[in-house]
């Protein structure tokens, strides 16, 4: 609980090296990636990125990922550890077919690098001690390849806590030194933080955890990520499952991801959600006690129509029903560093 609060008050350093960073290179890497994700990759300015979703033929989510267009012929992306094998197999299969038709794309998987996430209000000032690059000019979603603490790092101003912060891909042989330097420069205020607190933080920020809040059978529209589907992509389609997804955008999805408040014990994933008459309307996908709000928060899927903030519902936990309601997310206001 204290770790979560310290991240929001000072800062946290997470070792997220289990996640898988890779680069796609080649003059056709953008058009290749656009077949697999819903983002307008072509429309990204070099040095910027976005959250996106890899989709399957049915429009379901294979994974969510932060992608960055480094240059027009280089994309850097990070995929979930738990999805690594499946994602890489998926990309590889499509890459083979793409290359067979003469497309120019290749990849490199950064197994020689580690990934650190530095998050919280002290992230910027702390990291500034370790690089000459002016970080006040690097905004949320932007990316640079720069020298940090003497090592060549891929720096993205992004994160998974709702706070300002960075994800730093660093050569593994320099990772421990960098972590130590960050902790030292913060005078101990930034603390090494575990993945338990990271889960509380991302939930408070209303961010999905793939495998809980998003799965193979859930589309980005149902998951509330329609904003991540570029305008041009909505008009043109051209990604896997586009027919299903574009139809859902037009007609509205049957189920939607919502934020929840509830009484009683914290609702965990797979708790049943009922309407006021006790009829099943959905399921909780993530839930816990919010260290910042000091109450139970959760997210889950409910039938469309029952997704509006303020809708009363019931949550079944170990056979007992507890009162709850639909609420807006994020639960805790996000503090991304954006130009004012």
């Amino acid at each position: 609980m204290e770790s979560t609060i310290n991240c929001r008050e000072n800062g946290s350093l997470f070792d997220v090296s289990h996640m898988c960073g890779l680069s796609l290179k080649g003059k056709d890497c953008v058009s290749f990636l656009e077949k697999l994700v819903v983002a307008d990759v072509a429309g990204l300015a070099p040095g910027t990125g976005s959250l996106t979703v890899f989709t399957n033929e049915k429009g379901g989510a294979i994974d969510d990922s932060v992608i960055t267009k480094v240059t027009d012929d280089h994309i850097y992306l990070v995929v979930n550890a738990g999805c690594r094998d499946k994602d890489l197999a998926h990309i590889e299969e499509h890459m083979k077919a793409f290359k067979a038709k003469g497309g120019d794309v290749s990849w490199h998987i950064y197994d020689e690098r580690s990934l650190l996430a530095l998050q919280g209000p002290l992230a910027g000032s702390t990291l500034q001690y370790l690089t000459k690059e002016d970080l006040s000019k690097l905004y949320f979603g932007e990316f640079r390849i720069i020298d940090i603490n003497g090592a060549k790092c891929f720096l993205t101003r992004t994160g998974y806590t709702g706070e300002d912060g960075f994800e730093i891909s660093v050569p593994s042989e320099n990772a421990v030194d960098l972590a130590k330097a960050i902790l030292e420069k913060s005078e101990g205020k930034v603390r090494l933080t575990g993945l338990g607190a990271r889960d509380s933080l991302r939930l408070e920020a209303g961010l999905c955890l793939y495998g809980n809040d998003m799965e193979q059978h859930i589309t980005p529209v149902e998951a509330g990520l329609t904003w991540a589907i570029g305008k041009r992509r909505r008009a043109e389609g051209g990604f896997l499952g586009a027919e299903v997804i574009l139809k859902q955008i037009a007609d509205g999805p049957a189920i939607r991801r919502v934020g929840l408040f509830s009484s009683g014990p914290p609702a965990r994933s797979h708790s049943e959600i009922q309407n006021e008459n006790g009829e099943n309307i959905g399921e909780v996908t993530s839930g816990g006690f919010s260290p910042c709000l000091k109450k139970n928060i959760g997210m889950g899927y409910v039938k469309s129509g029952l997704h509006k903030p303020g809708t009363k519902l019931k949550i079944v936990i170990r056979g007992k029903t507890y009162e709850g309601s639909v609420t807006k997310m994020p639960f805790v206001a996000t503090k991304y560093y954006k130009p004012t």
Binding site: M1, T4, G196, S200, P265, P266, R268, G288, F289, P291, R318
Partner: peptide, 9 residues
């Protein structure tokens, strides 16, 4: 009964 913590049930 059950004890719920931030981390686990």
């Amino acid at each position: 009964g059950a004890v719920e913590s931030v981390k686990a049930t």
